[in-house]
């Protein structure tokens, strides 16, 4: 069965781009537009093998979303990648502290995205 990736980003274009890139690489993609919606989807949809999330989002931002995910027993160990333009080290540190696995910096090349995803979920 193909692995499932959840992409959380408030920008539709980025969501679509990630979706198409990963689907072409053989993954199943679930899309979500903010932390609140993503938390809901995690609880209701099929099990997710990887979460890719933006940091700056309305309602529930990336950091709080990651906290939520980690608090959920089912997802306490699922890899989480940040997808962000945030170059500030503080934010990244903060994200790692609450449980992020790594990050992808926007703008990214599609091949690179696939390579990172492959590395994280074998």
């Amino acid at each position: 069965m193909s692995k499932t990736v959840l992409i959380v980003d408030d920008s539709e274009s980025i969501r679509d781009l990630v979706e198409m890139t990963l689907e072409n690489a053989g993954y199943t993609v679930i899309k979500s537009f903010d932390g609140e919606d993503a938390t809901y989807k995690l609880n209701t949809s099929r099990p997710v093998d990887l979460i890719i999330t933006d940091l700056n989002m309305p309602n529930l931002d990336g950091i709080d979303f990651i906290k939520n995910v980690r608090a959920n027993e089912k997802y306490s160990t699922v890899p989480i990648l940040l997808l962000t333009t945030e170059s500030q080290a503080i934010k990244k540190e903060k994200a790692k502290e609450v449980g992020a696995t790594g990050w992808i910096v926007k703008p990214f090349v599609r091949e690179k995205l696939i390579a990172i995803v492959k590395k994280v979920i074998r």
């Binding site: 408030d10 274009s13 980025i14 933006d54 700056n56 989002m57 703008p107 990214f108």
Partner: peptide, 15 residues
């Protein structure tokens, strides 16, 4: 404002 700019920047550089 910050978020809107941030999204514009991210998408702008991406596309």
């Amino acid at each position: 404002i910050f978020r809107a700019m941030h999204s514009l920047k991210g998408g702008g550089s991406m596309f």
